[in-house]
Amino acid sequence: MLRYVLARLVLVVPTLWAVATLIFLLVRVIPGDIVELRLVSGGSYVTPEVIQQERGRLGLDKPLWAQYADWIVGLARLDLGTSMWTGAPVSKEIALRLELSLQLAVMATVVAVSLALPLGVWAAVRRGTWADHLVQVFSVAGLATPSFWLGILLLLFLLYAFRWLPPMTFTPLWVNPVANLSQLVWPALAVGYRYSAVATRMTRSAMLEVLREDYVRTAWAKGLAERAVVLRHALRNALLPVVTVIGLEFAFLIGGLVVTEQVFNLNGIGKLFVDAISRRDYTLIQGLMLLVASAYVLVNVLLDLLYARLDPRIRYA
């Protein structure tokens, strides 16, 4: 088992190297000139000398292979470079905001799971009834509702129902849990609802498949209570695809955070990404894209390990 884990982790390195290369190619090779784009996009006139100077400062006057070597060598030393806008190290810019976004991501996942599992199971057990249809409508609507609009609606609801708005400044969880949660619960709900939609559908279809199995019929036949049949016999066996979907969505959560953080004025990774894009801060964009890809790769490794725990038939030698 340990050998398997180590082997998987070693394989992460070439994967991330390939990802880093592709990101470099995307960001550095396709555009004509980063500096010109950045300076001229402001609408002001810039002399060629200034452009040349800026290019030298950012190391863009070097040949492409040298820039690539800089980026990869830096990465090997866990150095993501410095932000083209603030001049601070990219890793520091990310670290500053990671706590908020990570907490939000975990909370949104909790919301998604606690919606998806009961609703999916309920819909599958009551297949074809109004309950099933209601759950389906709920999840189809979740996929169509923009999470930033849902966020605005939540704010509106709070205003009308309680004449209250969540606090605007971030308080870490350990400093003041109440202030922290009363700020982050709402964006977590907005993102979580959207992300529950796919998981709900997956839970329902996985449950429908398992409920047809012989061992479930046996469990019914020997007179077990519905609760035991559904939860212990069926759900445990339907869990694998559901866990996969939830894991991959956790890795994709940054996509939801990008828009939702904007509505709730949260200074997290999503907002950093939007700022980096609108300022054309290419080093920061590279760093953030690598972060997103790493999250995806790591979640995949974790999922593989989790499968072995959830399903005793899966063994990694």
């Binding site: 390939a18 995307l26 990404f273 894009i277 890809a293």
Partner: peptide
């Protein structure tokens, strides 16, 4: 391989990066 890497990004992240590249 390139496709595998590109689908590992959320759609909006990919689209935002493309906006940054294309203008």
């Amino acid at each position: 391989r390139v496709t595998d890497i590109l689908v590992s990004f959320p759609l909006i992240v990919l689209a935002m990066a493309m906006v940054a590249i294309l203008g």
